[in-house]
Design a protein around this nucleic acid. Structure first.
Length: 610
RNA sequence: GGUCCCGUAGCUCAGCUGGAUAGAGCACAAGUUUUCUAAACUUGCGGCCAUUGGUUCGAAUCCAAUCGGGAUCACCA
């Protein structure tokens, strides 16, 4: 199906025959021909002028002539300066398209293109159970889900996992504040989503704490002393100790409040239409790392300082010395990650890669993690990959939870759904939709807008989230692509009515005679879109290799745009030209299939009509 | 200070394994609808690809330096 190898080897032949220049076909690079020039692929001949001892133009002509007479795929060529533009025969495009349309599912399904699928794990979301999800989490969640879907699509086995940070001093804060000031408030009694309720008490703690500190400072303490001696801060320490000791009352409270949070998260995850295969809880894994550290110490990979703390020296790989276990024997952050990573490779035999979707502020952390496992000689250490993404900024500046400038995920989803509803109603599109259908569609469109807006940006770049622009429905947006898909379906439905389900209506004499005069597959007008479709496997493969949904997003936009362009220049269902129409219906159907699959890879729903 | 990432149209972003005249969308201006969805399409306007130097037949793309923006370098998580 790929034409490039054949052309490349023909080029290699031509070079050796014409100029006794030997080169392996894989070293030859072909580019897509630019739109303004005639042709499909372009060979840049400058590198060969040394062997040919001729001008670039002459060299390109020689090679072109050779290809035209010796390679069946090449129907024609032209030369502009040192650029040899090669036209691939219509026959090739026809048979490519015939293949794709005869079996669209096989064309869209890329599993077979990866003969040796891997076994990967993607960790994403990883929330704290002390506050609701915000916009930053959303980039994480959408990226993680989409990357997983892309990897699945090319045939890998993928474990989607979530690691919930459900313990520690920050979790105790909301517990303590609720206990002291909550008066038994529950999500039900207050009609508040559980995660928001808990978040409220986390904020409450911070407020009280600051108040107490200010009070002590007024009394003459330094800020540092005050922070240590604030009564509420002492209570927190006590509570953490109680939790670690398994105190019954504390554990009950912890379980109850975490339960509220999970209920709240589930609602948000559901709205985002993401899921996990397995959820890990830090409370269950945070002690696992200790054994690894002790083992590493006995093997000599780590060392102990005089105070009893255990360290690793990574200065040889350009990093610092890092503490792995405190003098009192308790874990630090990275100790836990040592434990969970090891656990996962034990639990999932044959796991090759563990992809962490985590913000770029933790790049150093993951470098260290990987180096530690390398030092420990774990065979899978190279399979640890930090899929790092940039922060989400707002037009008003950075998001800071302490300053209350975060965009809450639930609020945002709600606003965007409402915006989608308003716009849709204003356009008067939904006359034949019932209430439930219409509501579902608003959400589909809203989420399409939001997800696409976030995923189209290269993960590693920090991005600016403009709430107003994110809900635009025109241009390079999710709804534009969804809309195109819905329109294609409408075309296909009409085609079914006219040609397929109602064959007799057009089957009479005059139609058939017209059909005979018609070239069934005249490619000229449609080649642009076929060429875009042709690139689909390569685009998805690239996305999978780079863990980048942005590649899929930008590709599917191109598909949608190409179709819209085509659609406006051509009548697709034309009863006077049945053959052409049937062929174009096939084209529409393959295009729809590609769009739907790409949207699926982005976690976006493709509405059948809108 | 060390390390890493980013800098492309007024704005938001593509393009980066070196190739022709650097692309979209938004915004702005002007047009297109008796046809299968106008949430569409067409045209115009808009660029010293941060700067400087290097490598090369050829640089937005590779290398170095500089300037700007961000992140990180905790016995925090």
């Amino acid at each position: 199906m790929q034409f490039e190898p054949e052309i490349k080897s023909a080029i290699a032949d031509s070079l050796s025959k014409l100029y006794t220049h030997t080169i392996s076909p894989s070293e030859i690079k072909l580019d897509e021909t630019k739109k303004d020039f005639e042709g499909d692929v372009t060979l840049v001949v400058f590198p060969f002028t040394k062997s040919s001892k001729k001008s670039p133009e002459q060299t390109a002509n020689d090679i072109g002539e050779y290809l035209k007479s010796n390679c069946k795929l090449v129907s024609d060529f032209n030369v502009v300066k040192g650029f040899l533009n090669i036209s691939i025969s219509d026959q090739f495009w026809k048979s490519f398209f015939a293949g794709a349309s005869a079996n669209p599912e096989a064309f869209i399904d890329l599993k077979k293109t990866y003969p040796t699928p891997g076994h990967l794990m993607v960790e994403y979301s990883s929330p704290n159970t002390n506050k609701p999800l915000h916009l930053g989490h959303m980039r994480n969640i959408l990226l993680g889900y989409s990357v997983s879907e892309i990897l699945l699509a090319v045939g890998h086995r993928v474990e989607k996992v979530n690691l919930v940070n459900d313990r520690g001093i920050h979790i105790c804060k909301s517990m303590l504040a609720w206990k002291k000031y909550g008066h038994g408030e529950t999500p039900v009694s207050s009609h508040t989503k559980g995660d928001h309720l808990v978040g409220k008490y986390y904020v409450e703690y911070d407020k009280r704490f600051k108040g107490e500190v200010a009070h002590l400072v007024d009394k003459g303490m330094t800020k540092e002393e005050a922070e240590k001696n604030a009564p509420i801060a002492r209570e927190i320490q006590e509570m953490l100790l109680k939790w670690e000791a398994g105190d019954k009352e504390t554990m009950e409270l912890w379980k109850t409040m975490n339960g509220w949070v999970y209920e709240g998260f589930d609602v948000t995850y559901k709205k985002l239409a993401v899921n996990f295969d397995k959820i890990y809880y830090e409370s269950q894994t945070y002690l696992l790392g200790k054994k690894i550290v002790e083992k590493g110490l006995s093997k000599g990979a780590f060392f102990k300082k005089d105070d009893g703390s255990i360290w690793i020296d990574l200065t040889d790989v350009g990093l610092d010395q890092k503490v792995l276990l405190r003098a009192d024997g308790t874990s630090v952050y990275i100790t836990q990650d040592l434990g969970t990573a090891s656990l996962r490779f034990e639990e999932f035999e044959g796991l090759q890669q563990l992809i962490y979707v985590v913000g770029n502020e933790q790049e150093y952390h993951f470098k260290v993690l990987k180096e530690i496992f390398k030092k420990l000689g774990r065979s899978w250490a190279e399979g640890l990959f930090h899929l790092s993404y940039g922060m989400v900024d707002l037009p008003s500046g950075k998001m800071k939870s302490r300053e209350g400038t975060v965009v809450d995920a639930d609020d945002l989803i709600k606003e965007i759904d409402e915006e989608a509803e308003m716009t849709t109603k204003a356009l008067g599109k939904l006359n034949d939709f019932d209430n439930a259908e219409a509501k579902a569609l608003y959400h589909t469109i809203g989420m399409g807008a939001l997800k696409y807006f976030i995923l189209k940006v290269d993960p590693k770049k920090k991005m600016l989230f403009n709430p107003t622009e994110s809900i635009d429905l025109n241009g390079n947006t999710g709804p534009f692509i969804q809309y195109t898909y819905a329109r294609i379906n409408s075309v296909i439905r009409k085609g079914e009515r006219v040609f397929i389900n109602n064959e007799s209506a057009v089957g009479s004499g005059s139609m058939e005679s017209t059909a005979e005069n018609q070239q069934p597959t005249k490619l000229d007008a449609d080649k642009d879109i076929i060429k875009v479709l042709y690139r689909y496997p390569a685009a998805i493969k690239e996305a999978a290799e780079n863990f980048s949904p942005a590649v899929v997003a930008n590709y599917v936009y191109e598909v949608a745009k190409a179709f819209n362009h085509f659609y406006h220049d051509n009548v697709i269902v034309d009863e006077a030209n049945k053959e052409t129409s049937l062929y174009r219906l096939q084209l529409a159907s393959v295009t729809a299939g590609v769009i739907k699959e790409c949207l699926k890879l982005l976690g976006i729903q493709a509405p059948e009509r809108m």
